[in-house]
Amino acid sequence: MIPESLKKTLEARVASAITAREAAVDVMKELQAHYGWLTDEAVGEAASLLGLSPLQVEELATFYEMIYRRPVGKKVIHVCDSISCWCVDCEGIIEHLKKKLGVGLGETTADGMFTLLPCCCMGMCGDGPAMSVGDVPYGKLTPELVDEILEMERQKA
């Protein structure tokens, strides 16, 4: 169940849209922020807010890269593996992340802090290798910098 205040906010967002379903991505994102991932319950809630069937919400949720339909850690790390980052050895960075976190791609650390996911070009090609932790983008990564960032993000959490 979502708190009444969030429900009101979302209802207002839907009401301000030209057609209700136009607000679908915003609603899914807000619900995801509340639950940590888009739970089955959240899919149902999104559906009733948007006047769609749960299947119609599912169809959207599974399409987008940044909507998670499975549990994720407290912070999701997206590390770019597209061409410009490849040119500057993102593969080394990805290997380092795996080793440091003790997980494979798509997995969550034992303490539930980080989920590691590869992602497509982040539009930081001039600053690669690049990754984001939660909503924060980081560029010009080196193994040492990655260590610092992980430490900092852990403390901020």
């Binding site: 057609t19 209700a20 379903r21 136009e22 607000a23 679908a24 991505v25 915003d26 899914m28 994102k29 948007l50 169809e59 959207l60 399409f63 987008y64 890269e65 940044m66 909507i67 992602c119 497509c120």
Partner: peptide
């Protein structure tokens, strides 16, 4: 503003229109 949730195909103009309407892009 419409803030999307990440998918390359949304840049294709007709997919983008579907995305904006809240349909599968």
């Amino acid at each position: 503003l419409h803030l999307s949730a990440g998918r390359y195909i949304c840049g294709e103009e007709t997919a983008l229109i579907n995305a904006l309407e809240g349909k599968r892009p």
